[in-house]
Write a protein that binds this DNA or RNA. Structure first.
Lengths: 209, 209
DNA sequence: CCACTTTTCGACCATACGGCCTAAATTTCG
DNA sequence: CGAAATTTAGGCCGTATGGTCGAAAAGTGG
């Protein structure tokens, strides 16, 4: 019995175990994205896979762990994509442009995923849960962006500002547009917003000549 | 019996009725902000007021109507505040600055309200509900901002761009920073972000000399 | 004081959910 | 093959929720 959690040490989870977990997580994402978190009961997710509810209980400590895994998966996917895109170019301004463009390119192809993420974010009961999640999963994102900005300043391409603050602002702008777009797809022209964001933040950060 | 809904025509609701509704709505806001929407059952909200659960059922068609009313109240409050602030100054760039500063000033004083709003947003079950709400309640906000931008262009203070797109972007930036800040208060320096947003969007929109 | 209406209460109900348990099926391995 | 483990199924239970119902209370107008 109990695979549950491997509290410490090496991968206690078997290969099969990992596959099942991934399968369940994927189903959870699909279900949440399609019908909303409120309608995504364990029973429904299990149905989607074609398995019994208990299988989820067996492989995950509880719904919380499943949801946590869902979030991690979604964020990791997004971050990996953006990082790859950014790494393809050199120099602060180009990397900043790449970061923004990659963010929008990814979200354009994964609208359902972001819908799921927002649903889940909103469902965190306690303030502590939100903060904890934010710290562990969302910070790397901002840190990446802040790093780009700081290096760009050192290389003399950007004007003087606090990288962390501007990073929060840029990331906030991306997320904010994403939010609007997820809520009402047709109210936002994603491509145009991306282009506008690129040019605005270029104007806003570039060193004055 | 049935006050329920006044489907059409004049204020069918009595004065007492309105007071009760407001009282319940305020309690709902408090409860949601403090303990999260998930923990804000009708029973708990009723407790907060010191009334029976049925009273809510009597004055509101259901929980949905109550929540809708909560959202409307929160947004109206915010919009009224921002509009007043913007109206105090003249000229596109100053109005834009006022809009951003007012947004941040208001959120700094009403963090709980925004926490409640995000919770509620995330809880909308269907995509249609999200879209409907977005259209009726959130659009005016962007429209206001777009109006400022367009008039600023006509007066020659702003460069050429699509007002709607830039409005979506600016509003998105504000909302995005707000989102981060609500999730983790200490990860964002609100005042600094506000100042940075003001200067960045000034650089980004002002007509090149 | 007396009908009559509006408002409130407390109890109750049907439902949906997460989690648990036991037994069966399946896989693993000596 | 056969025993031990891993994994799955399906039923069950406690709980919390939104909503309803009939009766009681509070208010209103004559």
């Amino acid at each position: 019995m109990q695979p549950k959690n491997a509290p410490s040490g090496r991968p206690k989870r078997s290969f099969i175990e990992e596959v099942r977990r991934r399968q369940i997580v994927q189903s959870a994402i699909t279900t949440i994205a399609a019908r909303g978190l409120a309608q995504a009961s364990l029973a429904r997710i299990a149905d989607e896979v074609g398995i019994s509810k208990s299988v989820i209980s067996y492989h995950f400590a509880g719904k919380d762990e499943l949801i946590t895994e869902v979030i991690s998966t979604l964020l990791a996917e997004s971050n990996r994509f953006i990082k790859a895109w950014v790494d393809r170019v050199e120099g602060g301004p180009d990397k900043l442009r790449a970061y923004i463009e990659a963010s929008f390119a990814f979200m354009a192809e994964h609208r359902a995923n972001f819908a799921a993420m927002i649903d889940i974010w909103g469902s965190f009961g306690t303030v502590e849960a939100k903060r904890a999640f934010n710290a562990t999963a969302y910070d790397p994102c901002r840190r990446h962006l802040a790093g780009i900005l700081r290096r760009g300043q050192e290389e003399g391409d950007f004007r003087e500002f606090t990288p962390a603050t501007v990073a929060a602002t840029i990331q906030g702008a991306i997320d904010g547009v994403m939010l609007q777009w997820v809520f009402d797809e047709e109210s936002v022209d994603l491509a145009e917003c991306a282009a506008e964001l690129v040019s605005m933040f270029d104007l806003a950060t570039r060193r004055l000549p």
